[in-house]
């Protein structure tokens, strides 16, 4: 009986909620911005926390395949550029965690969700970076796909997210150019270097296309996100746009894409591509990709090995604060 009353009570929105919902609907209809202190539907908040933290986790896990090559970069200039890039990714992670915190979920909770396997990150980072050319392919294709996904997010209805994306997109496009440059240099280099570049493009092409998520017919969250002005274009629209872009750029690189089905469809105005292996996508997403276990183990190890350092920093800060109080 008691539960029933509670359920009835919850079902009736308070006057405050009604006013909040009206304001929220008006903001969305006007295509302007929701800010942290504004009322928002619980589902909107949850969707954002899920998407933004997933993005932050992707930045953090995404550091690993590239950090893998910092110690082996083949020239000092490339080593410096790669270090700066991985550093940027840590910065993006921090920025996005902070933006997510404005929705009321602290960073350590988000981090724990990642470590417990409750939160996802982009499945592309579960593929290995076996060669130096992968630094090029990751920059050109993976960061390229990320940009195609993220540029529309600069206009996302949630203010802190949109603003974070503006800065992140600027740095990402820099990274994409650097990746392109690595591949170009390799393509114009020795036969072995060119082979290395082509091999990297062959391996990263399909996983990069899958970064846009399942096809529109198989993407349950997309509709609501579009209604809330978080998402602006469908997965397939973005993927098509990306294919159109890279099929042009690959010619400049003097390389090829491993897909003979790419064509522009005059009727739909969309770029078409070969069938993607969605079974593989779901397998990787479910944790059975080549590097899922390795990536998580490394993150867990860094977190656990750093525990005593974080505890020391907290203890020191406490002592300082106490001394300041006494004084």
């Amino acid at each position: 009986m008691a539960t029933q009353t509670q359920a009835t009570l919850q079902a009736v929105p308070s006057a405050e909620d009604e006013a909040g919902q009206a304001y929220f609907d008006k903001i969305i209809a006007e295509d302007s911005r929701i800010e942290p202190a504004d009322w928002m539907p619980e589902k909107y908040r949850k969707t954002l926390v899920r998407q933004m933290s997933q993005h932050a986790h992707s930045e953090i896990i995404g550091m690993q395949p590239e950090a893998n090559w910092i110690t082996r970069a083949p020239s000092l200039k490339r080593k410096a550029i790669l270090m700066a890039k991985v550093q940027d990714e840590a910065g993006h992670g921090l920025y996005l965690y902070s933006a997510t915190e404005t929705l009321g979920t602290p960073r350590d909770v988000l981090n724990q969700q990642l470590l417990d396997g409750k939160a996802k990150y982009s499945s592309i980072f579960n593929y290995p970076a076996n060669s130096w050319a992968d630094m090029g392919a990751i920059g050109w294709l993976v960061d390229g796909a990320a940009i195609a996904n993220q540029v529309p997010l600069c206009r996302a209805s949630y203010g802190p997210y949109g603003r974070a994306m503006v800065r992140i997109c600027k740095e990402e496009s820099f990274h994409q150019r650097q990746g392109f440059e690595i591949l170009l240099e390799l393509s114009n280099g020795t036969p072995a270097q060119k082979q290395m570049a082509q091999d990297a493009v062959n391996r990263f092409y399909a996983p990069a296309l899958m970064m846009f998520g399942p096809t529109d017919t198989d993407s349950p969250n997309s509709q609501q996100s579009m209604a809330w002005n978080i998402k602006r274009f469908s997965n397939d629209e973005l993927r098509s746009r990306f294919v159109g872009m890279i099929q042009e750029q690959v010619k400049v690189l003097g390389l090829t894409l491993p897909d003979d089905k790419i064509r522009y469809n005059d009727e739909t105005g969309m770029w078409e591509h070969g069938e993607l292996n969605w079974d593989e996508f779901h397998e990787v997403l479910a944790g059975r990709g080549p590097c899922n276990a390795q990536r998580m183990e490394r993150r867990r190890e860094a977190h656990e090995n750093g525990a005593w350092v974080r505890e020391a920093a907290a203890a020191y800060a406490n002592k300082k604060a106490q001394k300041a109080q006494v004084a």
Binding site: M63, Q64, A67, I70, A302
Partner: peptide, 17 residues
């Protein structure tokens, strides 16, 4: 360079890098 992605805090990944 080895520390980048292995530091005790994200802030330290950035600092050591």
């Amino acid at each position: 360079g080895w520390w980048i992605s292995r530091a005790p805090e994200l802030e330290e990944d950035v600092a050591l890098a």
